[in-house]
Design a protein around this nucleic acid. Structure first.
Length: 990
DNA sequence: CTAGCTGCGATTTTT
DNA sequence: TCGCAGCTAG
């Protein structure tokens, strides 16, 4: 690094590696690093560096992120660093919105009608469903849609490599192609582009007209591990002039494989841009060490992954918790009690804002929401159900779309009978068909019919006709006319808000809601009002930052101007599906409930991950266990100071079926505490330190505690198995059919007895009660006195703790250190990349690969039957429909063989294993066995891919016939404040 | 042909 | 819990 640069302002708060990354002179820079290492910070700093120091104009820089939220945050951060509003000129956004901008400006060059709309998920789904139905093809619309999307998302370059069976077109494939063609034709006719089209067409545009990006000096990509093929191409095309690209990413956090994210893009990039400067960041600034260790224990089960160092800069922290509860609602109640406890015990140093509950699927939120609601804790829900998915909002949006694009038959069909106008399914279908055959839009058919210009073939009785004219065509025409007039010079302003308000009035929407939803029409109308506010905000934001979204002028290139508000509003709504990080306005602290996917890139001091059982994580409908594991890893690494996993023992919906602890957690469950830590002073101080906050004095904390406050996590049995109350629904049945050894909890003396003998699949609970004891029998809790039973418990706890610790130690050795031969992530990738492109080849191709690896794996005596196969990261996401051999249960953690006997090393420390005080025990432990395995080099045979015959064909897609005339959901986006939960927010009770 | 009622089923992740 | 399919009356 050139010394003179070192004192640049932006470099001052970076560590060495980050500084090197920020100021690298290489054309292409790849920064790959684990969670919490400041990737995004580094990226934003580099943007500032490139603009401020290197001197690129902001408008010549493209920054692409993966989500809207990330884009917004990045913009904010860059704005702060630049300090003068120049960030507004940067072409910054998620891929889709950047692509949309280019298409809006230059799309006509490739024959795109400038007034194109965006077909969202619901649109394409219902369209495909209709096509399938009409073709009477026995294809699952869902599969068809996935196939089409995949086809587009892949990009073209990959296709160049024929996969052999590609030539053989099976009957199914032919049908798919036909559906695809029809689908595209329909979109084209409606002047719509779907999400994938935005990218595909933008690639087309930039390929044919490179001049559109001739000004671009440099391109930066965040969350690179989640880019898919087409996005990769787009990235290259953005940078085609100067080929300067910076990417940041973390393979371990690749969780969008299902959306065709291709981890291969890592080495595609290295191949395409030799001389890339690779930088890895190893310091973790986010989390306490205990959290990192455990997260590594989980991710490290993936034997093929690249091992990265994660060096904690913070203290050890208390042991993360794995809590078992009786049911999902008990789990939710426990979460609530624990949230309360943490906040109280921190003397309100922590607030609800510091807490996140991360879910595998949004549908899991129900219990949590109601528990929070019951206890009066306000929360926001991110991801999952969206504001715009509400019926009433969807309807308004569809009206707006029809106003903007009268030819949008699907939107029209959805609202033609909302409010009720006596138009039923049959009529709608007939109208759509007539539109199809007459190549008129439904709108045209209707207007002509009502005016008497042309009688519709569809039967439209007079009363129906009148209602349509009075309630639909005339009001919308009125609105359109006003918009046109307003656009003329001197016209009366008729903005977005006015449009919506006039629309609501014309439809008598409030009355409509009262009629159709007598129970909750107030709430729904409130949503509508909220929507109006949002529209107002949008307009205001648009005016404030008019430079936003505008591409720089390029000499000799004419842009189509996009000055209408409505289309931009609609596009915004379709593309921006994230809640705004709305801490700004209301100051009421909110607990965050989020899907794990939506939580990527974020962090919270306290994180709960409920429902950690097989079927949830890994999800039963997922075909990629490794990705599910990474998902859990992402969730865990969001936590800064406290991490809680939990698992309801019995599923709620079914007949009290037993849940099985997630197989990602099961092998390492011993490393967790079984209940929340004791928040004594040292623990809290450490938390305060990580967060950079000041802990109130002990006195203050104590005084603020309610009189009946329970300072321990002991409101719920640590072993729900032995609790008296039995979960509702067949107590007897269950006790009897439950496996015998579990019915009675093993005695303490039997602690490790059953360990080796036929470890039953279910969770071994023997040690837990004592582990639990370990965390509550703190010195504070039991000053100087220990009963015999307690003592016994403590001993066993110590033993368990020792085992866990040893395990952890081992893993640290194994996973938290990069093997010496693994120089960097990119080195790793390089060494295996030669094989990576062949990952789809048949087993025969495999054997040649290891020889090519430049970084030779240490010779490990492979188990017979264990076949060395390329450590291709690519295999992590098999093509849909590929027959994989059943993904194996994760192998037990290496050498995780609990000895059949207690450890002899019990000392005084185990009573407080979570203490941050240096734990002599840890150091004194006998040295862990040498690592016996270099993870990168070997793995079990479970990843053989027998054949590709069915790849990509939507094979087996015959299940789940999907309803046809369902009007698709229309995920349009919340623009703001979507975090409103379904249920009304409850206010904190006294 | 539409609208309302009832009983059943089912539930990833996102641009 | 919600949403959808199927049925029946008007």
């Amino acid at each position: 690094m050139p010394p003179p640069l070192a004192n640049h302002r932006i470099l001052s708060n970076l560590n060495d590696a980050q500084r090197r990354a920020v100021s690298s002179n290489a054309a292409t820079v790849a920064i790959l690093a684990g969670p919490g290492s400041g990737k995004t910070h580094t990226l934003t700093s580099r943007v500032v560096w490139l603009i401020d120091h290197v001197g690129y104009r902001p408008e010549d820089v493209i920054v692409a992120t993966f989500t809207v939220k990330a884009a917004r945050e990045m913009k904010e951060r860059i704005g702060k660093a630049l300090g003068d509003g120049r960030e507004k000129k940067i072409v910054l956004g998620n891929f889709h919105s950047i692509a949309r901008r280019y298409l809006a400006a230059y799309g006509r060059k490739i024959g795109i009608n400038q007034k194109f709309g965006i077909a969202d998920d619901g649109d394409s789904r219902s369209l495909i469903a209709r096509i399938c139905k009409r073709k009477e093809v026995t294809l699952d619309p869902v599969a068809v849609r996935a196939w089409i999307s995949k086809k587009k998302a892949k990009g073209n370059e990959v296709d160049a490599k024929p996969v052999g069976q590609k030539a053989i077109k099976t009957a199914g494939e032919k049908d798919l192609e036909e559906c695809y063609n029809e689908y595209q034709a329909h979109l084209k006719k409606s002047n719509l582009l779907d999400f994938d089209d935005l990218l595909v067409r933008c690639v087309e545009l930039l390929r044919e007209f490179p001049s559109c990006v001739s000004n671009i000096q440099t391109v930066l990509i965040d969350e690179y591990q989640d880019t898919n093929g087409i996005q990769y191409e787009l990235m290259k095309l953005f940078a085609q002039r100067h080929k300067r690209i910076t990417i940041v990413g973390d393979p371990d956090q690749s969780i969008y494989g299902w959306r065709s994210a291709e981890i291969q893009n890592l080495w595609r990039m290295l191949k395409d841009f030799p001389g890339t400067d690779e930088i890895s960041l190893e310091q973790n600034y986010r989390s306490l060490d205990a959290i990192l260790k455990l997260s590594l224990l989980v991710i490290q089960q993936d034997k093929k992954r690249y091992q990265k160092a994660l060096k904690p800069v913070h203290g050890r922290g208390s042991r993360p918790v794995l809590r078992r509860l009786k049911s999902a609602s008990a789990e939710a109640d426990w979460i609530v009690s624990e949230i309360r406890r943490v906040i109280m015990m921190s003397g309100s140093m922590l607030t609800f804002n510091d807490v996140a509950i991360l879910l595998r699927s949004a549908s899991l939120s129900r219990h949590v929401e109601s528990a929070l609601g019951k206890s009066g804790i306000a929360y926001r829900m991110v991801g999952g159900k969206k504001f715009y998915e509400r019926l009433e909002i969807k309807a308004i949006l569809d009206y707006l779309r029809v106003i903007y694009q009268p030819g949008n038959n699907d939107a029209l069909a959805r609202i033609i009978n909302v409010p009720k106008r006596g138009v039923g399914d049959v009529t709608i279908k007939s109208l759509l068909e007539e539109a199809e055959s007459s190549s008129l839009s439904v709108w045209t058919i209707l207007t002509k019919h009502c005016r008497g210009d042309r009688t519709a073939k569809t039967k439209i009785p007079k009363p129906m006709e009148q209602r349509i004219a009075a309630g639909l065509t005339r009001p919308l025409d009125n609105i359109r006319r006003k918009m046109e007039e307003a656009a003329k010079p001197g016209g009366v302003a008729f903005g977005l808000v006015e449009i919506v308000e006039q629309l609501l009035a014309a439809l008598n929407f409030q009355k409509h809601l009262q009629d159709t939803h007598p129970d909750d029409h107030e709430q729904r109308w409130a949503n509508v009002e909220e929507f109006v506010t949002l529209a107002g905000d949008f307009v205001r934001d648009l005016n404030e930052s008019s430079a936003d979204e505008l591409l720089p002028e390029i000499e000799g290139l004419e842009q189509s101007k996009e000055d209408e508000v409505l289309p931009r509003f609609l596009a915004n709504v379709s593309l921006a599906s994230d809640a705004q990080t709305g801490e700004g306005k209301e100051n009421k602290p909110l607990v965050t409930i989020s899907t794990i996917h939506a939580a990527k890139g974020l962090e919270w001091p306290v994180v709960f991950v409920p429902a950690v059982y097989n079927g949830s994580i890994p999800h039963m409908r997922s075909d990629d266990n490794d990705e599910e594991r990474r998902l859990l890893y992402v969730a865990m690494t969001r936590a800064q100071s406290l991490l809680y996993l939990s698992c309801p023992l019995f599923s709620t919906n079914g007949n009290g079926e037993r849940n099985q602890l997630s197989s990602f957690v099961e092998p390492v469950h011993r490393a967790f505490a079984t209940k929340g830590p004791c928040f004594d002073r040292p623990v809290m101080l450490e938390i305060a330190k990580v967060l950079g906050r000041t802990l109130p004095t002990e006195d203050a904390v104590f005084k603020a505690l309610p009189s009946m406050f329970n300072p321990e996590d002991n409101l719920f049995p640590v072993d729900p198995e032995e609790s008296q109350e039995v979960p509702a629904g067949g107590a007897e049945g269950r006790t009897s059919h439950r496996d015998a050894p579990r019915a009675k909890r093993p005695r303490l003396s039997n602690m490790y007895g059953g360990q080796n003998a036929g470890e039953d699949v279910q969770w071994h609970r023997d040690y837990t009660t004592t582990m639990e004891a370990a965390s509550s029998f703190t010195v504070l809790a039991l000053p100087g006195f220990v009963s015999a039973g307690t003592h016994q418990a403590a001993i066993t706890a110590a033993n368990a703790a020792a085992v866990a610790r040893q395990q952890a130690e081992q893993v640290k050795k194994l996973a938290n250190r990069r093997p010496p031969n693994q120089k960097s992530i990119l080195g790793f990738v390089k060494s295996t990349s030669s094989s990576s492109f062949d990952h789809t080849l048949l087993p025969s191709a495999r054997n040649s690969v290891p020889a090519q690896t430049s970084v030779a794996p240490p010779q490990v005596t492979a188990n017979p039957g264990q076949q060395a196969i390329p450590t291709s990261l690519a295999t992590h996401k098999p093509a849909k429909g590929t027959l994989l051999s059943r993904p194996s249960r994760p192998a037990p953690a290496p050498d995780e063989t609990p000895k059949g006997k207690a450890y002899p090393c019990f000392s005084s420390s185990p009573v407080k294993p979570d203490s941050i005080k240096p734990d002599p025990e840890e150091e004194n432990d006998e040295p862990p066995p040498e690592p016996t395995r270099v993870a990168a080099c070997l793995h079990s045979t479970t990843f053989t891919r027998p054949t590709l015959l069915t790849a990509g064909k939507g094979a087996g897609g015959l299940t789940r016939p999907s309803p046809v005339s369902k009007f698709g959901r229309t995920p349009i986006a919340p623009i703001d404040r979507l975090r409103k939960p379904f249920k009304p927010l409850t206010i904190k009770r006294p």
